[in-house]
Amino acid sequence: MTKLFLSLHVLAAVLTIGPVTVAAGMFPRALRRAHSDPDGAEALTPLRILHRICRVYAAVGMAVPVFGFATAGSLGVLGSGWLIASIVLTAAAAAVLALLILPAQEAALGAGRASVSGSAGRLALLTGVFNLLWATVTVLMIVRPGSTTGA
């Protein structure tokens, strides 16, 4: 059962976190481009698509920690330091996405041209933090310091 949970956990992470990180990373540049385009409403279409990708995959991404807890439980490592650190970092990444990135994207979709530069820069920064948190979790999942199941 452990192999099944681990497989589902890794697949869920790859298939859900990957698209969110890419779409969120593309959003600031697309925002700058859309608001410099004189075509207005049509230029916002890519932004709406990127925002929708972030929203949908963030919701579906809840499967990652569900399968992660199932995997950790079957391995008997729920109290391990590396796992607790990963859980905290995952919660932080989810909070950055849900409480900062997604609302900022929504606000940027409705903002005027004057605030685009600042909001694009802030979104780029937040996305960088989000991606750094996930990169750290990935390294912890691979290295698993102090784990008896690690390499």
Score class of each variant (00 low, 15 high):
M1S: 13
T2W: 04
T2P: 00
K3R: 12
L4A: 13
F5D: 10
S7G: 15
L8Q: 07
L8H: 08
H9Y: 01
A12C: 08
A12E: 02
A12S: 14
A13K: 01
T16G: 05
T16R: 08
T16N: 10
P19E: 02
V20W: 09
V20S: 06
T21F: 03
T21N: 14
T21G: 14
T21W: 08
V22H: 08
A23M: 12
A24E: 05
A24L: 06
G25N: 03
G25A: 03
P28D: 02
R29Y: 12
A30P: 05
R33P: 00
A34P: 03
A34V: 01
D37Q: 05
P38G: 15
D39A: 15
D39G: 13
G40F: 07
A41F: 02
A41N: 05
L44T: 10
L44C: 00
T45E: 15
T45P: 00
P46Q: 07
R48F: 01
I49H: 12
L50F: 08
L50M: 08
H51G: 13
I53Y: 02
C54N: 13
V56N: 06
V56L: 09
V56P: 06
A59Q: 09
G61E: 07
G61Q: 05
M62A: 04
M62E: 04
V64L: 04
V66G: 07
F67H: 11
F67S: 12
F67R: 10
G68Y: 09
F69K: 11
F69C: 00
A70D: 01
A70G: 13
A70M: 15
T71Q: 06
G76T: 09
V77A: 04
G79R: 14
S80R: 12
S80N: 13
G81R: 11
G81A: 09
G81D: 10
W82K: 06
W82F: 08
W82P: 03
L83G: 07
L83K: 06
L83D: 04
S86C: 01
S86A: 15
S86E: 04
I87Q: 02
L89C: 10
L89H: 08
T90H: 09
A91Y: 04
A92I: 11
A92V: 13
A95W: 03
A95E: 00
V96F: 03
V96G: 01
L97Y: 11
A98D: 04
L99P: 04
L100E: 06
I101L: 11
I101P: 02
L102D: 05
P103A: 06
P103M: 05
A104N: 12
A104C: 06
Q105E: 14
E106V: 02
A108G: 07
G110A: 12
A111G: 09
A111H: 08
G112N: 07
G112I: 05
A114R: 14
A114V: 11
A114E: 15
A114Q: 13
S115G: 15
S115R: 06
S119P: 00
A120L: 10
G121R: 13
G121D: 13
L123Q: 06
L123F: 07
A124G: 14
L125D: 01
F130T: 10
N131S: 14
W134A: 03
W134D: 06
A135E: 00
T136K: 09
V137L: 07
T138V: 10
L140V: 02
M141Y: 02
M141S: 05
V143I: 10
R144N: 01
P145A: 06
G146N: 07
T148V: 10
T149D: 06
G150V: 00
